[in-house]
């Protein structure tokens, strides 16, 4: 099969995994095979399906800088749904297509992936290995996010009850590195004086 020379597509064909210890989060927070609107609410689910929770956990781990590779000795599971299908509108009423969120997940995973790109271009590094590195980055951010979610619920079982809870957590502005260095500079100036 001809190489598509498209890292993103190759990555999107994968089914990223999560640690089995987070399975109960998927069971309690999301609805396998999908649920929307009143049905979702009546089932007590926050996410319409498993991959939404996974994406949420990914971005949460990304923003909170919680990059946690899944342990070698941990059992890994996936939900049998490759990334390229995540966010398709298909027959979901009242929902929009959000497949382009895959681009952003890829971009963030790529940034965190450490491999010799020139060797890849030269054909001296296999695409399979590269995709594995990128996918591992994806899984690590998601794992970090899932761990954070678990800890939040352990602290407060009603942490996600409010309709805006999940939104507030992930859209809360980050403290940027620029802001940090400004604060550090001010601190140093004070010390000099």
């Amino acid at each position: 099969m001809k190489n598509s020379n498209d890292l993103k597509n190759e990555w999107a064909n994968k089914k990223p995994k999560y640690s089995i210890r987070h399975k109960e989060l998927f069971d309690s927070l999301s609805q396998k095979f999908g649920a929307e609107g009143d049905r979702k609410a009546s089932l007590g689910k926050h996410f319409s399906n498993n991959y939404e929770l996974y994406m949420y956990a990914f971005f949460l781990g990304l923003y909170k800088d919680e990059f946690e590779p899944i342990g070698e000795d941990e059992e890994k599971v996936d939900f049998s749904y490759p990334i390229h299908l995540w966010g398709r509108k298909s027959n979901r009423l009242d929902r929009e297509d959000f497949t382009d969120l895959q681009d952003y997940m890829f971009m963030a995973s790529f940034v965190k992936s450490d491999f010799d790109f020139i060797e890849l271009e030269k054909g001296k590094l296999s695409i399979g290995k590269v995709i594995k590195v990128i996918t591992t980055a994806t899984e690590s951010y998601a794992n970090g996010g899932l761990q954070l979610i678990k800890e939040m619920l352990e602290d407060d079982a009603n942490a996600f009850i409010a309709p805006t809870a999940l939104m507030n957590i992930i859209t809360k502005p980050l403290v940027t590195s620029d802001a940090e260095s400004t604060m550090q500079q001010e601190q140093e100036a004070t010390n000099v004086d």
């Binding site: 926050h46 996410f47 319409s48 939404e52 994406m55 949420y56 971005f59 990304l62 923003y63 966010g87 009242d94 929902r95 929009e96 959000f98 382009d100 969120l101 952003y104 963030a108 309709p163 805006t164 999940l166 939104m167 992930i170 859209t171 809360k172 502005p173 980050l174």
Partner: peptide, 15 residues
């Protein structure tokens, strides 16, 4: 709100 995170790309607020 949870749906808007995905449908309206609110999840990218800090990206």
């Amino acid at each position: 709100y949870t749906s808007y995170l995905f449908d309206d790309k609110w999840i990218l607020a800090n990206f």
